[in-house]
Design a protein around this nucleic acid. Structure first.
Lengths: 153, 153
DNA sequence: TTGTGATTTGACTTTCTTTGACCTTTCCTA
DNA sequence: TAGGAAAGGTCAAAGAAAGTCAAATCACAA
C-alpha cells in the first residue's frame, strides 16, 4: 500500500507510544519534520487518535504550548469504550442508572460519586423539552467517562 | 470461449492471490493497465470476488486509497472475524444472504438455522423507515455471529 | 431472429487527504 | 499592564481515490 503522509505520521506517533505511555510533541516541529503543514498534524490526531481508538489528546496553546498524546490503558479503557458506545446515543434514565451501577461495581467511581452523577442526569436536572432528555443524558455521561479515562484511575 | 476483459482481469487477480494471501491494488492503475474504465474493476470484484466465492474485498477511497482482495481459505474463527467486519457496516439483504450461504457451506449453521436467520433479516421483518434497514440488518447479524463465537461451534 | 443475462462504458457521487488562510490562547517583556 | 511573539485550533477549498447506477452493447440460447 502507498502510505499517505497521514499514515506515516500516525505510525511515528504510535511507535513513540510503544516506549512510553504518553508523548508530548510540538505541532510545528513535527510538521517541519514531515514537511507538511501544521494542520495536517491536527488531521491525523482527529482521525486516528480518538477516544474510541483508545487514545487521549490534550494540548495547550501559546508560548511553550504542546500536544500530549496518551494511550489509554486496557481493561478499564475497554469497558469505558463500550460505555462510550452506549452514551453516544440517547439513553434512558434507567439504562444510565444501570451503567453507573456497573461503573461503581468495577470501582471506577465511588458510591458518593455515583450519587452525584445520578443527580446530575436525573429528570429534574434535565428539565427539558421531552425527548431531548435522553440525548443530553448521553452527552453528560460521555463527558464523565472521558474524564474518568483521563484520570486513568 | 472468447475471454472477456472481465475474465482476464479475474485471472490476473487470482494468479496474484496464488502468491500471497491478499493483494492490494489501485483501481485506476489496474484499469489503465487493462485499458478499461475504472468501474470495470468494480464489476469484476462484485461479480467474481464475493464472500460467497470465498473472497473478501476491502477498500479505501480518497488520497492513497486502495482495494485489497483476500482469499478466505482459513479457519472458521478467521472467517467469522471477517464476517464481523462486514456486518459491522450496513449490509444489504443480498450480501447478507451470501454471507449466510457461506456460513452454512462451512457448517457453521444448519440449514434450518440459516432459514430462520434469513427470515429474521428479511425486508418484511425489518419493516422500518427505509434506509435504516441495512443498519439493523448489520446489528442483528453481528449479534448472531458473536453468539456463534461465544459457543465455539 | 429475438429475448435475456452478462459485460462495457461513462457521468455523477462519496469519501479521505492535503493545503492554506485566518483565529484563539498563552507567555514574556518593555 | 499592554502588546507582540509563539504556540496550537478551525474550517473550507482543492485534490485524489474509489463507488454507484443505469444506459448501451454483446453473446448466446431458444
Amino acid at each position: 500500500m502507498n502510505k499517505s503522509i497521514s499514515d506515516v505520521i500516525e505510525e511515528f506517533i504510535k511507535s513513540s507510544l510503544d516506549v512510553d505511555d504518553f508523548i508530548e510533541l510540538s505541532r510545528n516541529d513535527l510538521a517541519r519534520f514531515f514537511s507538511c503543514v501544521p494542520s495536517q498534524i491536527n488531521y491525523v490526531l482527529n482521525t486516528r487518535f480518538t477516544i474510541n481508538r483508545g487514545f487521549l489528546v490534550e494540548s495547550q496553546r501559546g508560548g511553550s504550548g504542546y500536544i500530549k498524546v496518551s494511550r489509554l490503558h486496557d481493561s478499564d479503557s475497554n469497558f469505558l469504550n463500550n460505555a462510550l458506545q452506549i452514551t453516544n446515543k440517547p439513553i434512558s434514565l434507567n439504562e444510565a442508572g444501570q451503567l453507573l451501577d456497573q461503573m461503581k461495581e468495577r470501582g471506577l467511581i465511588s458510591e458518593r460519586e455515583q450519587a452525584l452523577i445520578k443527580s446530575t442526569i436525573s429528570t429534574k436536572a434535565l428539565n427539558n423539552p421531552i425527548n431531548i432528555d435522553n440525548n443530553l443524558r448521553g452527552n453528560i455521561l460521555t463527558q464523565i467517562i472521558i474524564e474518568l479515562m483521563k484520570r486513568g484511575r
